[in-house]
Nucleic acid binder design. Structure first.
Length: 841
RNA sequence: GCCCCCGUAUCCCAAUCGGCAGAGGAAGCCGCCUUAAAAGCGGCGUGGUGUGGGUUCGAGUCCCACCGGGGGCACCA
C-alpha cells in the first residue's frame, strides 16, 4: 500500500518538524501553520465583495463543480490558478467578485439514490459539505456569502422563470423527432452528449434513436451571432476553444436552389456550397428518413423505399458514423428539373443525406463531390465534369475533383476559370430567374433540453387537453420536485416524475379542468447557463438577478474551466446571455470577456483512473506536503493550459522552496518601516524588477514564470543575508516582504506566516502591493554585444542611454572587433543601442 | 478529409519588438554536514531549438513544405 506508506512517512516528518535542529533554528511546521491561520482568515473575511464599493469592479469566475465525492487534483489545479488572479486583483485595488457554488443537479446523485435507497439530495448535500470543507482548507479566496446550489428550490425557481421568459419569446418549443436515446441511462441525450463513436459520453453505452416529443431551445436563431461573436473573443479566449466553437457552429456559405418535381406544385429546395457546379448535377438525393421522401415516392417504388427505410433503421449509429461504408439508397420513381438547363434528373433517397442539415435534400454532382461519385458508381448514374482542373476526368478516375479549374458544359460559365466568380455568377442567375438565392447554413442544431430523469429542474408547463401547453403562473413557482427516493427513481424509459400521481395531476391554471404537469426535467446545462448571474444576488427572492448589479459587475472578466466544456457549456451560456440581453435584462452581449482553460492533471503519461491504478489522491498529497506546496506545484509545473504529469513534478521541491522563503522572514533583523532607500541597491533593483515582472506575468497568465522569478529573488536574498549586505540591511526586509506578498498569490499560509514574522498584522492578502520604483528598473550599465556577421565577437559594458553613434564608435574601436574585422571593408553596421552592434563585412 | 495548437538540455519548462539560447524546478554528478544514510546546505548546464528550404545584417521567434504529438469537426452537401 504505497498510500499508507506515504502517510506513515508524513507522520514521521511531522514529528521531526516539531523539534528544532541542533543549531537551535526552527523548522517549518506545515500543518501547524495551516491550523493557525485558517480560523484567523475565517474571522477576517478578507474577500467579501461589496456591491457598493467605489473601487473598480472585477468578476473572477471558475466553473462550479458537480458534487461527486471530494475534490480531486483537477479541482486543486483550477482553484490554485484561479486564486492567483483573484488575489492579484484585490492587491491591485479592485473590488473582486469571486463566488463559488455547486452544479448540484445531475445523474450521479440519482444513481446513488437508487443504489442506497435514499433521496438524491442526501448524496448531493453531503458531498457539498465535504467539498466546501476541502475548499476552505485549500485556502481558496471565494466569497462564501454568495454560495449557491442549482438544486435548491430558491435557485431552480428562477431557472424555471427564465425558461418561461425564453418560451414567451418563442425560443422554446416542443417537437416530435428522432432523438438520441441512451438505453443505459434511459434518457434522451443532446447531440453534444453523444461521442463521435456513437456512444453516450456519460456511461459509454451505444446510443440509439427514438421518436419522442421533446423541448428544444432555438439556439439556431442565434447561430450567426454566436459565430460572429467569436471574432471579438479571438484574442482573449484561449484559441483552441474559439476554434472548437467555430467548428461546432459550422457556418458555411452556399445557395438554395429550387428544383421542380414532376407532379408536385412546390419545388424542392436543395442546399449546396457549390452552386457553380449546377450543370453537373446528374441526380438528386433526399434524406431517406425525411418526410419529403415518403411524400414523393411513386406507388411503384414505395415497397422498395419502405424496405430501404426499414433497413437503415436497423443500422446502429456506429455503423452510420463509419465514413467509409458503402453508399446505399433507393430510386423514388420521380424526376426533378434542373433550373439552369431544364434537364430532368432522377430523385433518389439515401441515408448519406441528413434530414436535419440544410434542406435535407441535395443536388448530386458526382464529378466534383466524392460522396456523390461513390453513389453514382454504385447505382450506375451518369458523371458529368463541369470544372476542368487538368486532372483526370472523375468519370474514369473515380476521384472527384474539387479544386479550381475552367468551367465546361456549363452554359454561360464556360471559359471562366475562377471558382468565386462561378459561384457569384450562378447565384445572380438563380436570383434573377427566381429559382434560388445565396444563403448561409449552419451545422448547429437546436438545443434539446428534456431529460427523462428525476434529479433536475422540473419544466414549469402544464398540459391541458383543452388549452394545450399552459405555463405555470409565475406566482406558483417554483414547481418543486415531488419527494421520490430509491427504487422510485429506477430508469424505466419515462420520467420518474410521471409516477408521482398526486404531483402530476393538477388543475389547468387556465381553464381549471384536469391537466397534467410536464414530467421531464431540464438538461443540467440549463442550470449552469445562468449561474454567474445568480451569484450577483443569490438570496434575492424577488427576481432571478438584479439588472443594475449585472451591468455593474458583468461581464465576467476572466472565466477559468476545463476543456471538456469548451463547446457545450460555454456555447449555452453565450446563448443565454444573448437571449437575456434581448429580453432586456442586461446590456452586454458576451458573458465571459476572457476565458482560460486549465489542462488536466495526469500521472505517468496517462489519465488517472481506478482501472489503471494510477490515481493520485489530493488528500494524501495535502497531508504529506501541505496545501501551499501542492498549490505551488500545480501552478509552477507548466503554463495553466498545459497538462501536468504528476510524475514530472516535485511537491517535495515545492515544499523545500517554501521553507527557504519562510526562513528569509526569520532572518530579517531590521524593523518594519526601515528606510529602504539606504538599502543595498543591487538587491533593491532585483526586488523591484521582480515585482514589476510579476505584474506583467500574472496579467498574461504566465503564473509558472512568476514563481520562477520569486525563486530567483529568494535565492538572491539568501545570498545577500549570508554573504552580502547582511540581514540588517533594509533591502533584505524589502525583498522578504515582496516575496511574502507575491508568494501569497499561490502559497497563502506560508506568506501569512512570513508576514507575521516580518512584524505585520494579518492578513497579507490585503497588504499593499509593493510600489515599483521605475528608477530601480533601469540598469546601471548594460552589456552590449558586438557581432561580426551575426556572430558575437565582443562584449562592452555601456550606459543604458548611450547613443547609437557612441556605441558604434566604441564597438569599432574595440581591439577584439578590430582583429575580427581583420582589415576587411565594413559594408554595413547595424546598431541597436544599447544592446547590440552588428558589423557586416 | 477540413480547421486549430504545440515540438528548446535526461525530464517539466523560460527566452517583451526578430538581437548573447537558459530564468526556475526535477534528475544526475561533486563537495560540506553526519559514525553512516536520509534530510539540509553549497556548487556543476550536458542541447543549439523536430527536419529541409526561404526572408533578414541577424531566426527558437516571421514565411513555405514535410515529420511527430495533441485537440476540434466530419457522409454537414
Amino acid at each position: 500500500m504505497p498510500g499508507a506508506a506515504r502517510r506513515e512517512s508524513a507522520r514521521e516528518n511531522e514529528m521531526s518538524e516539531q523539534q528544532t535542529t541542533e543549531t537551535g533554528a526552527e523548522t517549518y511546521d506545515v500543518q501547524a501553520v495551516q491550523d493557525k491561520w485558517l480560523p484567523v482568515w475565517d474571522q477576517l473575511q478578507p474577500f467579501r465583495a461589496d456591491d457598493d464599493s467605489p473601487r473598480e469592479k472585477k468578476y473572477a469566475l471558475t466553473m462550479f463543480p458537480y458534487p461527486s465525492g471530494d475534490l480531486h487534483m483537477g479541482h486543486a489545479e483550477v482553484f490554485a490558478i484561479h486564486d492567483v488572479i483573484a488575489r492579484y486583483w484585490w492587491f491591485r485595488g479592485f473590488e473582486v467578485l469571486n463566488p463559488m457554488g455547486w452544479d448540484s443537479f445531475g445523474l450521479p446523485a440519482e444513481n446513488a439514490a437508487i443504489r442506497n435507497d435514499e433521496h438524491p439530495a442526501t448524496y448531493t448535500y453531503a458531498n457539498i459539505e465535504t467539498q466546501l470543507h476541502s475548499m476552505q482548507r485549500y485556502a481558496t479566496s471565494f466569497d462564501w456569502s454568495r454560495r449557491l446550489h442549482t438544486s435548491d428550490p430558491e435557485y431552480y425557481r428562477w431557472t424555471q422563470w427564465l425558461f418561461l421568459k425564453i418560451r414567451e419569446r418563442g425560443l422554446a418549443y416542443r417537437k416530435n423527432s428522432p432523438v438520441n436515446w441512451c438505453p443505459q441511462d434511459q434518457t434522451v441525450l443532446a447531440n453534444e452528449q453523444v461521442l463521435a463513436d456513437g456512444t453516450c459520453e456519460r456511461c459509454g453505452a451505444e446510443v440509439t434513436k427514438r421518436e419522442l416529443t421533446q423541448w428544444y431551445f432555438k439556439t439556431t436563431d442565434y447561430a450567426q451571432e454566436l459565430y460572429d461573436g467569436l471574432d471579438a473573443l479571438q484574442d482573449t479566449w484561449i484559441g483552441k476553444v474559439v476554434n472548437a466553437q467555430r467548428n461546432w457552429i459550422g457556418r458555411s456559405e452556399g445557395a438554395h436552389v429550387d428544383f421542380v418535381l414532376d407532379g408536385r406544385d412546390e419545388p424542392v429546395t436543395v442546399y449546396t456550397t457549390r452552386p457553380d457546379t449546377l450543370h453537373g448535377a446528374t441526380f438528386m438525393v433526399v434524406a431517406a428518413d425525411a418526410g419529403l421522401a415518403a411524400e414523393v415516392v411513386t406507388d411503384e417504388q414505395r415497397p422498395a423505399y419502405e424496405a430501404y427505410v426499414e433497413e437503415i433503421r436497423k443500422a446502429s449509429d456506429i455503423d452510420r458514423l463509419a465514413t467509409d461504408r458503402p453508399k446505399t439508397g433507393v430510386f423514388l420513381g420521380v424526376h426533378a428539373t434542373n433550373p439552369v438547363n431544364g434537364e430532368r434528373i432522377p430523385v433518389w433517397a439515401a441515408d448519406y443525406v441528413l434530414a436535419d442539415y440544410g434542406t435535407g435534400a441535395i443536388m448530386a454532382v458526382p464529378a466534383h463531390d466524392q460522396r456523390d461519385l461513390d453513389f453514382a458508381r454504385k447505382f450506375d448514374l451518369p458523371v458529368r465534369m463541369v470544372v476542368d482542373t487538368g486532372e483526370e476526368d472523375p468519370a474514369s478516375s473515380y476521384v472527384a475533383t474539387t479544386g479550381d479549374g475552367t468551367y465546361v458544359n456549363s452554359g454561360a460559365l464556360d471559359g471562366i476559370a475562377d471558382k468565386a466568380t462561378g459561384i457569384r455568377t450562378t447565384i445572380e442567375q438563380l436570383q434573377a430567374a427566381g429559382t434560388g438565392e445565396g444563403t448561409v447554413n449552419f451545422r448547429l442544431r437546436d438545443w434539446l433540453l428534456s431529460r427523462q430523469r428525476y434529479w433536475g429542474c422540473p419544466i414549469p408547463i402544464i398540459h391541458c387537453e383543452a388549452c394545450g401547453e399552459v405555463p405555470v403562473p409565475e406566482d406558483q413557482l417554483p414547481v418543486e420536485l415531488p419527494e421520490l427516493r430509491g427504487a422510485d427513481l429506477k430508469p424505466k424509459g419515462t420520467s420518474p416524475l410521471g409516477a408521482a400521481t398526486e404531483w402530476v395531476e393538477v388543475d389547468c391554471p387556465s381553464c381549471g379542468g384536469p391537466a397534467r404537469r410536464d414530467t421531464d426535467t431540464m438538461d443540467t446545462f440549463v442550470d449552469s447557463s445562468w449561474y454567474f448571474f445568480r451569484y450577483l444576488s443569490p438570496h434575492d427572492d424577488t427576481q432571478a438577478f438584479d439588472t443594475a448589479l449585472a451591468n455593474a459587475w458583468g461581464p465576467v472578466d476572466l472565466y477559468i474551466g476545463g476543456d471538456e466544456h469548451a463547446v457545450l457549456h460555454l456555447l449555452y451560456a453565450r446563448f443565454f446571455t444573448k437571449v437575456l440581453r434581448d429580453i432586456g435584462l442586461i446590456d452586454w452581449d458576451e458573458p465571459f470577456s476572457a476565458y482560460l482553460s486549465q489542462g488536466k492533471v495526469i500521472n505517468n503519461g496517462r489519465k488517472m483512473s481506478k482501472s489503471l491504478g494510477n490515481g493520485i489522491s489530493l488528500g494524501d498529497q495535502l497531508d504529506e506536503f501541505g496545501v501551499d506546496a501542492v498549490r505551488l506545484t500545480l501552478v509552477f509545473a507548466s503554463p495553466p493550459e498545459d497538462n501536468i504529469d504528476w510524475a514530472d513534478v516535485s511537491p517535495a521541491g515545492s515544499l523545500r522552496f517554501l521553507q527557504r522563503a519562510w526562513r528569509l522572514a526569520n532572518d530579517v533583523t531590521s524593523e518594519p518601516g526601515a528606510d529602504v532607500t539606504t538599502g543595498d541597491r543591487a538587491l533593491r533593483q532585483l526586488t523591484h524588477r521582480t515585482v514589476h515582472e510579476a505584474e506583467v506575468l500574472v496579467e498574461s497568465y504566465r503564473f509558472n514564470v512568476v514563481i520562477a522569478r520569486v525563486m530567483e529573488l529568494v535565492n538572491a536574498t539568501r545570498k545577500a543575508i549570508d554573504s552580502g549586505c547582511g540581514p540588517a540591511d533594509p533591502a533584505v526586509r524589502e525583498a522578504a516582504e515582496a516575496v511574502a506578498i507575491v508568494l501569497s498569490l499561490v502559497a497563502p499560509y506560508t506568506a501569512e506566516e512570513m508576514w507575521e514574522r516580518l512584524g505585520h498584522r494579518p492578513t497579507v492578502a490585503r497588504a499593499d502591493w509593493p510600489v515599483v520604483d521605475p528608477a530601480l528598473l533601469v540598469e546601471d550599465s548594460v552589456t552590449a554585444i558586438v557581432q561580426i556577421q551575426g556572430k558575437v565577437k565582443a562584449r562592452l559594458e555601456v550606459s543604458p542611454d548611450i547613443t547609437e553613434a557612441d556605441l558604434e564608435a566604441l564597438a569599432l574601436a574595440d581591439p577584439g572587433v578590430v582583429a575580427a574585422i581583420d582589415g576587411r571593408p565594413v559594408r554595413k553596421v547595424v546598431v541597436r543601442a544599447p544592446k547590440l552592434v552588428n558589423v557586416v563585412v
